[in-house]
Design a protein around this nucleic acid. Sequence first.
DNA 1: CTCGTGGCGATACAGTGTATTGAACGATAC
DNA 2: GTATCGTTCAATACACTGTATCGCCACGAG
Lengths: 236, 236
Amino acid sequence: MSNELVWDRPEPPSRPSPTPLSRDLIVSAAIRLADEGGLDEVSLRKVAAALNAGPMRLYGYIETKDELLDLMVDDVYGEIALPEPGTEWRAALTRIAHSMRTAAKRHPWFVDLLGGRPHRGPNSLTYIEATLATLDGKPEFPTIDHVLGAVSAVMAFVHGAVRNEITEAREEQASGMTEEQWQAASGPYMQRMLATGRFPTLAKVMYEAEHTSAGPLFDIGLSYVLDGIATRHTPA
Amino acid sequence: MSNELVWDRPEPPSRPSPTPLSRDLIVSAAIRLADEGGLDEVSLRKVAAALNAGPMRLYGYIETKDELLDLMVDDVYGEIALPEPGTEWRAALTRIAHSMRTAAKRHPWFVDLLGGRPHRGPNSLTYIEATLATLDGKPEFPTIDHVLGAVSAVMAFVHGAVRNEITEAREEQASGMTEEQWQAASGPYMQRMLATGRFPTLAKVMYEAEHTSAGPLFDIGLSYVLDGIATRHTPA
DNA sequence: CTCGTGGCGATACAGTGTATTGAACGATAC
DNA sequence: GTATCGTTCAATACACTGTATCGCCACGAG
């Protein structure tokens, strides 16, 4: 064989500093990508690239992409601040609800994954445990079934409310304008629809409502749920 | 050129009966696929194949895949039975909630799309209109903001509850067993977790609770929300 | 018969998750 | 010191996605 062209040989491996990896590194890289660009930005290739690694290297630490997503979800559960044990139950549930909401706002992709797969990670289990514990043992909730019913209701409301709120926020951000200018954004189509007169109440909402911002609306809804629970469980 | 082999020529086009297409046909084919095999089964190629068409043909009727998904969502909204106008507000909201729930159970993929994109289709607008109309004008809800607050709360609960329920159902179906055998399904992992003693309340739920099935649990939660709204809005 | 024209299929491209393969490395056995 | 082995990772490959582009073919107008 000749040895011409030896100089522009493709320079053997010479690993570009093969950073040591770990599940946590991978997960936090994925979370960073998702926070910045949404869930679409989380592909195994991109996550690997962010860690100076080839895509296949991740499979040494992770079984499948769904597993990565599960790990990301559990990581966010770990961020949710929980109330001190012993807090009065209404205050405790309110705190949990608010923590969940702020965590979801910090990681908008979280709600997309919420409820997609079951949450059995250690952090999500402690989250659920803490939530159940706020009611367990209180005299107003004599059996575990009472506890479960109330907690399910609160969780359902929180999940739904947060999801709706995030969706709305994404939409506003996408069109780059506030809710008050919204009717102009979605423009001709909504104008025409409302003009048909088939949606009078909706029109009233669009034109007359004060457009209470999402925060207070969340609190109002939450207090409805908690009130409902309280009135059912205080025989007085 | 020779003309041997003429007989096994690939038989020129001879369109296999170019069925006339329409948005509705495409949408209902997509819905059928999704009902049977989940959202993953809805790819433009598969939908097209179900209609004896090439993938690109769909683009004559549809701008993008997201548009198809939006159309599917709106179609489901169209299935949701709405209460007669004039029904007492608690009954009306209860009816809407139940209709939404049964529609979501008929089309489990619906909840995955709920809140992913805004719902501005004609059917979803009439759904929202009907929901708002149940409270508008009632003396207990003097301003449109009161209406909006209450409706938002109910909707948030319903969305969250349905989503959680569907997720759980999917999971049960995936592992092929009922909630009562569930602890055996998720098996060693959950066993170990519960055995750590770090989740006493959760353990109580798993072992002691009656496991009220989803239907009644939904009703309990809904009545919490409605009770909360009622007590806030009846000054008596 | 000829000539657009427009609908539609084939092809192509960039991207995805993942299976398989093969090469390079460190450690161990003689 | 050399040979072998097992691990670690990168490269390649495959099936699949949504969509842009191109070119063919049937049909209607002149």
